[in-house]
Design a protein around this nucleic acid. Structure first.
Length: 439
RNA sequence: GCGAUCAUAGCUCAGUUGGUUAGAGCGCCGGUUUGUGGUACCGGAGGUCGCGGGUUCGAGCCCCGUUGAUCGCCCCA
């Protein structure tokens, strides 16, 4: 560390919209991932890994004509060979590409799950970053509503096991099959055209680009018009109706609570039938905790065979924000405190011994006995273990001292572990062990 | 891309209508006290007040610009 101020070096700032995690939040983050990985095994979803980078065409083609998304909100660049590369903004398109290029049709229906970083070039705000992380689950190659239902039951169990189901609602809609969807869309456009004069400016723009989005507009001027717009129900074909009924019947059978939200839509054309979001009001404007739907048209749009598929994704950061205080129990059970600088080597020996024996133990890198004890007191561990070597007798004396109330017991395990390598003398009054190496 | 708010020590913040050497708590370092050891005390290091201009005798404070953060809008795969 230089103190020379004239030689000050400017520290590079983190890339906008990226974040560093330490301690509690990092623990929550990995807790979410661990829970997901455990639950997805229960449901028989195979782990899949796909690249972080893909040719831009993978996403441009799958995202189709929503030009805003493709042109402004993807992290794209040309590589040295001049090929346009994009940092994946979602998992689905990459998995669909892998499904085609690896011939995974042979495994259909294929249930897969993954998680990792995604990138979107957006303005950061609460629960929204340029590099963010998602959990993802997909069923490729099944047109059965049972697949939709299973994914939702899976999602529901995940949220419950994370302990965040409270205040989170599953909202569900159907977009019908292609015929239903087209008919509904036409009716919506007619309806909004009739009220053109009363719509907000934003919604006027949506009318041309993405009329269904007017349905979930937040502008009060749009609400009346949107609320009086026709539901899709009147336009559903018999098949589409049956499909939706089968999904909801599956949810009811599994005991998963859901709410119909006839205003829930998807911007992209390849979505069919089921669309769903688990929403909460605890995350400001970014209320969706987990969302997905059926995308029967996607794989074909990427040049593959016509393949039905359904899936969901969930933001890990958002889930981590909702996870309540946990008893992570990462604190060391014992903090070793050498009584005297002379005892350092003995403490190091014991530290390794304890750790190899499965006891979480730690020792500060510096400080006097007193300062070490003070630091340990400040909530850094469950108990202190002072170490002093009695030079004359060749014995080691260690003493347990409680640092926190209610810490889980360790003394019995400590005794058993020490007994494997030392001749033990224990003083229950002072909670002191005298150790002599077994010979 | 648009709007609002904010930016002072490692962290959380205070800083009076512009007025001398910019403060506190926590943390860090050193010491005293204690010693079946803890919440005490003393001392110390650490800040070009985000950055760049401007107004003024004088700017942490006012004005403009810029960068970044936060929250929201657009978008949301």
């Amino acid at each position: 560390m230089s103190k020379d101020k004239s030689a000050k070096v400017a520290t590079p700032q983190p890339v906008r919209g990226t974040q560093d995690m330490l301690g509690d939040f990092a623990d929550r983050f990995s807790h979410v991932v661990d829970t997901f990985d455990r639950v997805r095994r229960l449901y028989g979803y195979k782990r899949v890994e796909v690249p972080v980078i893909e040719p831009t065409a993978v996403f441009a083609r799958s995202l189709g004509e929503t030009t805003d998304v493709v042109s402004k909100e993807m992290y794209s660049f040309d590589d040295r060979g001049g090929e346009s590369i994009t940092l994946r903004p979602e998992f689905t398109a990459g998995i669909a590409r892998a499904y085609i290029t690896n011939g995974w049709q042979q495994f259909a229906p294929l249930k897969v799950a993954t998680h990792g970083p995604l990138f979107r070039y957006e303005r950061p705000q609460k629960g929204r970053y340029r590099q963010f992380h998602q959990l993802d689950a997909e069923v490729l190659g099944s047109d059965s509503p049972l697949a939709d239902a299973e994914l939702l039951v899976f999602a529901d169990q995940l949220l419950k096991e994370l302990g965040i189901a409270e205040g989170v609602t599953l909202t569900l809609n159907t977009l019908g099959d292609a015929a239903s969807r087209d008919a509904w869309r036409t009716a919506l456009v007619d309806h909004f055209e009739a009220h053109r004069g009363d719509l907000s400016e934003d919604s006027l723009a949506r009318l041309d680009k993405n009329p269904m989005r007017i349905l979930d507009s937040k502008d009060p001027r749009d609400r009346l018009i949107a609320d009086s717009a026709p539901d899709i129900d009147a336009f559903l074909t018999g098949e589409a109706q049956d499909f939706f009924c089968a999904v909801t019947a599956g949810l009811d059978a599994a005991g998963v609570a859901w709410e119909r939200n006839a205003r829930l839509v998807r911007g992209l054309d390849y979505y069919r039938h089921t669309a769903f979001e688990f929403v909460t009001d605890r995350l400001g404007a970014q209320g969706t905790v987990l969302g997905g739907g059926r995308y029967d048209g996607l794989i074909e749009a990427l040049g593959g065979p016509s393949t039905p598929a359904v899936g969901w994704a969930a933001g890990i950061e958002r889930l981590a924000m909702l996870v309540g205080p946990q008893n992570w129990d990462h604190l060391p059970e014992l903090i070793l405190i050498p009584d005297d600088p002379e005892d350092l080597a003995t403490a190091q020996m014991l530290l390794r011994f304890l750790r190899r024996g499965g006891i979480r133990a730690d020792m500060g890198f510096s400080g006097s006995s007193k300062k070490r004890y003070e630091k340990a007191r400040r909530g850094q561990g469950h108990r202190a273990l002072t170490v002093s070597s009695t030079l004359t007798s060749g014995a080691i004396v260690v003493r347990i001292r409680d640092l926190m109330d209610g810490a889980p017991p360790v003394r019995k395990r400590l005794r058993e572990l020490l007994a494997t390598s030392f001749e033990l003398q224990e003083d229950n009054e002072t909670r002191e062990f005298t150790l002599r190496p077994l010979t």
